[in-house]
Amino acid sequence: MVRRATVWFVALVIFAASVVAQVNINNLNTARAVKRTAGINTYNEPFVLPEKVLANGVVGFRNLTADYYWLSLIQYFGAGDPFGEYRQLPHLLNAITALDPKFAYPYTFGLLILPDQGFVDEAIALGEKGLVEVPHSWEIPYYLGYVQYRYKKDLVKAGEAFERSAQSPEAPAAAKILAGINFARAGQRETAIAIWKVAAESSENEYTRERAKEYLEHYAIIDFYEEQARAYKTRYGRFPNTLEELKTGGLIRDFPPDPVNIELKIDPKTGSVSEVLD
């Protein structure tokens, strides 16, 4: 009886020690997280096998592995990268499209998200791969055209891509408008708004529609700043030197939150507002 009680007591002590150890580990991690970036504690950067390994090593379950990487990518992009780099995004998208080349949405998704993370060339390469693998898609050439236009300023390639999108039998009527635009003469913002309006109204995917609406909101914010800049000039006789002056000058109370989070600047000579990447 005494012996059994002793065994139970020892087991209880060991269990209590394991609880204490676990609490200490948690505290250590929390302390580390405070020093660095919030969320680092739970952050796991996805591991992507090299394309050659995936091409030859995944036997029988290529689609399933592509789906696994797709779900990993959504978690990765949705949860946020505490380092703000998202350096695995292009690798994940390449892996998915290597394993399941006919899976259309990753091409569109990549064209939508990669450029804003600094992967413009990777987005274009992905889009061009999509043109070959999913030739009937209207969305892949459409967003490829946007990337060429917006980030590469290559009006010829953008025009070709929009033309190709418009020729797709699945393209909505609105997409054909883009094929007729003379990009060299059209205003950049008006063109971007036209592009996103089509996406917001016609895309088959809810995420794409939401993303398009966010961009439209972003351009509405730019229009709002320019309107306030004109009001500033009426009041102070000049345009503000920075957007901050709209606030200090009493024109706006707070900066409206920009859903796409692109830094903006104001031209003190003309009062026009543009994106810093321009």
Partner: peptide, 23 residues
């Protein structure tokens, strides 16, 4: 569940995972 977190690619995920799972 997995299909519902796939950005509207649920039918593809269900088919892929379902068929692979049966095998």
């Amino acid at each position: 569940i997995l299909g519902s977190i796939s950005l509207e690619q649920d039918v593809k995920v269900i088919k892929d995972l379902g068929l692979a799972g049966i095998f």
